[in-house]
Design a protein around this nucleic acid. Structure first.
Lengths: 257, 257
DNA sequence: TTGATTTAAAGTACCTTTAACTTTTAATTA
DNA sequence: TAATTAAAAGTTAAAGGTACTTTAAATCAA
């Protein structure tokens, strides 16, 4: 079909967006790692790994979770996001990225030294135009432009600041991911898996909030319950820990994968 | 991160599902080609090409259309479907497949000899459980199982019949594609692009029909019009060519890509 | 203990969308 | 000219979504 000499056998990286929910702060979290090798050394990035022989991309995505945060997720929910193929998305050797998303049922403490100089949970928020991901030291934003700039570490662009931008096209990948999750809220809200085995209606609204870019209070509890009544199963009342009527607890009914 | 010796640099194939509409038979069509090289020599398959250096996968998908049916589609609508990575999906050397879909605004006559021993339009239909794709000599079906059998041409399985099954996992890819198109009918029916610049409401219902697995008559014209009124723009009355009131003609209003 | 406060559940009314069906219109055909 | 055909246009009831109000179950302070 094509002659051999023009064939491309690029590197294949698996990029996995790992989502969790922090029940202390009631916020959606995403895992970012600090790179300790070129390109983009010392930049924060979405966790990546190279695909190995004899494993499917889904298997590589789960192995990645094990390597980065020591969590065994065999049998847990990982889904394909998209594949990023722009030849300019990496400096030097071309690398395709197969994007996946994993929804962790709880937020594990991170142990240092899993193949990166640092790994942290970043809290999701939003502005008018972007989704934001912040920790105590940084705030990163999603971007609307697929490959928004040339490679800082190689060419030293004017915005070459590893405290303000993520590596590669990862700000764009975040945008694609958040838009996908938002679109699926109406018919297959797999993101709710980050709430684990029991949660209140308010918890669920707190997950929806940043994707819809509205405050939790703007999502009416009564209407939210009605439109999710066959998705949520009532499993009793929550323990009381403050003023106000205790919320009921729910679990997810089925959520087909 | 990972040591070099276990890295995989597989072949990358672009698999493009090319959809069109036959205004003579009023049926949805898909392009299949007859392979003239191993593996799966003489099997019918979805059109594929190898990705080249310096081109993105989208560009390769459009180049593929040009090569297979001589149609220049620069600027036309091609969208990503999914990426297929099961190590067992190809015999011998591993090959990832990046799936794309192209919606042709009209159905070109096929010229023989574009890098395959044959290329034909297959008519889409449906049964209870599968989507079907038939021409005068064959009927192929989508399948629910990702890699449903080992490789006929290599191992000589009992169903090793190139007149009954497609190459590789292409029956599974068809299932993923049809389900995706069906899901998007409600909010972004890009498949309607195959109707070209003007069409009747019945034409649009004939496109929906096989994906919904119902007869055209079961899709109520009046309700269909109401739920699509901001998507369709009335551009006048059709020419009369038989008994009955002439149908009005519409064009697509925007259809964001 | 009693009433104010807090938080969430439960209920209400209205409006829009959906779905099934009927009527009207505009063409052909006997 | 009336019957036939095919599609547009209209009707109605049920379902679903949205905004809002009321009730319930807890804490807290006088």
């Amino acid at each position: 079909m094509d002659s051999e000499n023009i064939l491309e056998r690029p590197f294949i990286t698996i990029t996995n967006l790992i989502w969790s929910f922090d029940h202390a702060t009631n916020r959606v979290n995403i895992l970012l790692v600090k790179r300790d090798n070129d390109p983009y050394n010392n930049y924060w990035a979405l966790p990546e790994t190279f695909m190995r022989a004899q494993e499917s991309a889904e298997e590589a995505a789960l192995r990645l979770v094990k390597e980065k945060i020591g969590m065994d997720l065999s049998g847990s929910h990982t889904e394909q996001l998209a594949t990023f193929t722009n030849p300019l998305r990496t400096p030097g050797d071309r690398a395709l990225s197969l994007g996946y998303m994993t929804f962790l049922p709880d937020k594990p403490q991170l142990k240092a030294g899993y193949g990166a100089s640092d790994a942290r949970w970043f809290t999701m928020g939003y502005t008018d135009k972007t989704y934001t991901f912040s920790d105590s030291d940084h705030i990163f934003q999603s971007t609307d432009c697929p490959v928004q700039r040339t490679y800082y570490s190689e060419f030293g662009g004017t915005n070459a600041d590893p405290d303000k931008h993520l590596a590669f096209d990862h700000e764009w990948i975040l945008k694609v991911a958040c838009d996908r999750i938002r679109n699926k809220l109406d018919y297959q809200p797999n993101i709710l898996l980050i709430l684990g085995g029991k949660f209140t209606l308010k918890d669920a609204r707190r997950v929806y909030s940043p994707f819809l870019k509205v405050r939790v209070e703007q999502i009416d509890n009564s209407n939210f319950k009605k439109s999710h009544q066959e998705l949520f199963t009532d499993i009793g009342s929550s323990e009381v820990n403050g003023p106000g009527r205790p919320a009921r607890l729910y679990k997810l009914a089925h959520l087909s994968a």
